[in-house]
Design a binder for these strands. Structure first.
Lengths: 239, 239
DNA sequence: TTCGATCAGATTGTATGCAATCAAATGGTC
DNA sequence: GACCATTTGATTGCATACAATCTGATCGAA
């Protein structure tokens, strides 16, 4: 009997490649692989004990998601978004996530709020802990709140867009983040959930916009404004 | 001298695969490849005179865009979105395209309006012509208006999202479209451009929403509502 | 006749080998 | 000593061969 994998429903083919893609993406999102890192096909293949063919498929996936930049005859590198890209990323997030919040406020059910509460709880717990491992987990948990929001909205297409935007945001934070784990000072996620509980789409979307503004405000995007050379000195990655 | 291809700036690697991807996408968007059509690696490879390796990369790209559905050990097929997917697609378009219209209204410059006028002119001209070739070109031109809107908004990320949504919309229209070339009765594109000229973001986004509603209203999504069996009888494609 | 298991054909999944290409190192010349 | 052409090493681009898997057909038994 063909029993579909219960983990993800939308990609049966290339199971192996997708597993590697997920592992690489996790490493990128958790800032273990820093922007500019070279992802050699042979090296990745040796690490996962697969041939370059499989690795290529995984890297191509990540390239489509914008997490990896592939250069012809040069190889694949963890993407290092420019400040301009970062701005566009947050502009896109404002547009899309505000709509998601509105829809989620209308559609959220009891089971969803249980998941929200678990997510918030995990966040606060991880923030109280110290150490690099907890920091990474906190970064991931913070992003998962936004993904959960998209999931509750119930639109698979927008959910996929959000997943991509969240992952790329993690890259931007790794590059330009000031405090490390951004946007964690105030309990803004909790306030958003409260707005959802009140079935208040306008307030939910407004709070989301404010929240994204706070995340963006915590970045230092001036670094390479007019000084591309300085960036090249820090990291020799492509602009 | 390494002269980068002037056509598209964001994918140097796998030039050949990307060329094939573009040709296949064009054929899908123009309804020359109907949903459910099998895209055998060997067959496509023979047609383009390349090996399966290149074809696989192209098909994987299209799979990520949602234009092709890949089933493990079975092959790739032109996607046939379910009514549910179609609804989500237009919901996503409403959210994203409304924001794009707002931004475009603020940022559109003189050169952009020249392009808009050319686009509108091409549309009306193709609509007046008869014949299948003109129909296909009209479908394409109608979509290109929306892509141009995203381009003018100046956000590369949202532009890519829009390109995917437009392409998938073409699939939905191919499956569920009633009049064939939908949404072409009234000059709604022209009205949107007029709102942009007036620098009226609210009106522009409102007109875009109405326009998308009209496109969706021209579809017949009842077919498989509660009757997945009927769908299987019409097309044996996967749900 | 109908149902089931086995087998054959075809298609995809994966590994590997060779060719093309690029970046850096080397050597020569001004 | 600086600059430029050449070479070398490594890496990717692509094609092909083999293995795994699925679909449909054939054969046999109830």
């Amino acid at each position: 009997m063909t029993q579909t994998t219960p983990e993800e429903l939308h990609f049966q083919p290339d199971d192996r490649a997708m597993a590697i893609r997920d592992q690489l993406r996790d490493a990128i999102v958790e800032h273990r692989l820093v922007p500019g890192t070279k992802l050699s096909e042979a090296e990745v293949g040796k690490l996962f004990d697969v041939s370059r063919t499989v690795v290529r498929a995984a890297l191509q996936s990540l390239s489509f998601e914008g997490l990896v930049r592939a250069e012809r005859n040069r190889g694949a590198f963890v993407a290092s978004p420019s400040p301009e890209e970062a701005s566009q990323l947050f502009e896109a997030r404002r547009q899309i996530e505000a709509g998601i919040a509105r829809i989620a406020a209308e559609r959220a059910r009891h089971a969803d709020f249980i998941r929200f509460d678990a997510c918030l709880e995990a966040e606060t717990r991880l923030l109280q802990e110290r150490g690099p491992a907890s920091r990474r987990a906190a970064i991931r948990a913070s992003g998962e709140f936004h993904i959960l929001l998209a999931e509750v909205a119930g639109n698979a297409i927008m959910q996929r867009f959000m997943e991509e935007l969240i992952a790329r945001s993690s890259l931007v934070i790794a590059l330009y983040g000031r405090t490390g784990a951004s946007s964690c000072g105030h309990n803004e996620h909790g306030e958003i959930v409260a707005a959802l509980r009140d079935r208040d789409p306008d307030r939910a979307s407004r709070l989301v916009l404010v929240h994204i503004d706070h995340i963006e405000a915590d970045l230092d995007l001036r670094g390479t404004n007019g000084l591309p050379l300085a960036d090249a000195l820090n990291l020799r990655a492509s602009t």
